[in-house]
Design a binder for these strands. Sequence first.
DNA 1: TTATTGACTTAGACCCTGTCCATCGTAGGA
DNA 2: TCCTACGATGGACAGGGTCTAAGTCAATAA
Lengths: 122, 122
Amino acid sequence: MTSQRRVVAEVLDGDHVHLTADEVHARAAERLPEISRATVYNTLGELVTLREVTEVSTDGRAKRYDPNAHHPHQHLVCSSCGTIRDVHPTGDPLAALPTEERFGFTVSEAEVTYRGLCPTCA
Amino acid sequence: MTSQRRVVAEVLDGDHVHLTADEVHARAAERLPEISRATVYNTLGELVTLREVTEVSTDGRAKRYDPNAHHPHQHLVCSSCGTIRDVHPTGDPLAALPTEERFGFTVSEAEVTYRGLCPTCA
DNA sequence: TTATTGACTTAGACCCTGTCCATCGTAGGA
DNA sequence: TCCTACGATGGACAGGGTCTAAGTCAATAA
């Protein structure tokens, strides 16, 4: 645990946090001006491997990093401004996929992205 | 309708087709060697606007283009080799998101990606 | 104490994906 | 025949991300 890694971990703290790697880098640099992009990417990669944060890519642009990895959840995205909220649908989304639609796959996970307009944009 | 556009449309034909723009370009170039990347991107963009194909981004890398746009479906992705299959879950995924979990959004769409291992990789 | 080792960081080069723009070709109309 | 306009082309460019060589630093071995 180095100061760089601690700062990255601290930046990624809170609810509904979905920062891009660049945003993480910018916020980390406020506290540790000389931290490099490579270190941020390395640390984020390790946090993902450790399952402390999850990667979210909702727009085909930069991946975002979601620290709320211990509570399974899905995402609700505003199609206009890109705002992301964590949401908790009812039931198990995996149950909706019948065996004959699994093509012999061992399916382990279902990732759901809801899209719509947020109150501000609507 | 030019020969370039026709070739791009022909390349994107069939079931379970999920090519990247570069793959589309490579296949189009087999038939029309001088077709440019820009033209492929332009044509793909138009096909998306016309809702003839949909964009899929399952890995945060290159977007993929799915010609099966007239039959609503979701995707099943192999976490190991990246193979993508079109699948048809039962029920409406939107129904699983209760009002109090919508945060005032007008939700219009749910995009589901199932992940697991394909028979070959398992 | 000094030397060695190995893990971590840094800066910058580099790659991939995608967009933009100036130019060119060509088909159709005046 | 000459214009015009649209589409195609190639190259430059930008954003996101990865890789590598070199530097730093702390802990251990001699």
